[in-house]
Design a protein around this nucleic acid. Structure first.
Lengths: 132, 132
DNA sequence: TTCCTTGCAAATCGTTTGCATAATG
DNA sequence: CATTATGCAAACGATTTGCAAGGAA
């Protein structure tokens, strides 16, 4: 259980993440944080994102596009991914926690939770499709 | 819309996949199909798995372990992933299709579907944990 | 003969890691 | 001082791709 020391880089990364609601990737975090600290390395960004996710201070999102996204909002909520523009958007919806019980009903083993995300076309992509 | 020609390799890959219910990865498909055709290449396996998934003859599964799994069963059903042994298992459960409507209720855009998988410990891993 | 498919190897891409140095407690 | 964190670059693992040769329609 390593004894976590404070680091300016980690702080910057977490702070940047808290200003964004669009679930940036490691690379986007890197490009942005680099504007305040031009010598920060991509490795450091990855290391800290992984560390923060491991201790539960941020969430790592996998939405099928092959790149991890990160979210400073660790409260339970679901995401939508636009298949047109790739945007990852928070959804406000009623709880669907009950699906975990449904899944466990006929299952020999223990179900701890589920991963779910929704996909389709976001508002602006839907509108531009209608024009064409 | 390329005019798809018959290929022995593609046939072997699909046939192998149909014999398995454990959702093998590309590498496992490769190792197995190679026993019947030792000169088949990994690239060919990847190309055909991607092609078959694109035309809907098989399904590509992403369950968060960083490796794609493939499933010859394209009927709608859900999967469970064991966090201990990595097994990917079919679940028999009631439909949860309704969550797509729930998600769309307050959403500006069009939700086409969702991706969901469950995780926890499978039957045998649950039992061996109890022993220790 | 057209053009889809293969085998092979090299290339990509996101992410991780080893190492020497710097920063923290 | 003991240890954790950093920057850099090299290494990784899964997957994709360019290319010349082979096979199907």
């Amino acid at each position: 259980m390593a004894a976590l020391k404070h680091s300016r880089q980690r702080e910057m990364i977490k702070e940047f993440l808290m200003t964004r609601k669009d679930h940036p990737t490691a690379d986007i975090v890197y490009m942005n944080v680099r504007q305040q600290n031009p010598t920060i390395s991509l490795g450091t960004v990855y290391r800290n994102l992984t560390l923060l996710a491991d201790i539960g201070e941020i969430a790592r999102l996998r939405v099928g596009d092959g790149v991890d996204h990160f979210d400073a909002d660790t409260s339970p909520h679901y995401h939508f991914v636009c298949t047109e523009c790739g945007a990852v958007i928070d959804l406000e919806m009623d709880s669907i926690e009950s699906i975990t019980e449904l899944a466990g009903a006929n299952f020999d083993g223990h179900i701890a939770g589920h991963v779910t995300y929704f996909y389709g076309t976001c508002g602006s992509c839907t509108r531009s499709q209608k024009l064409s």
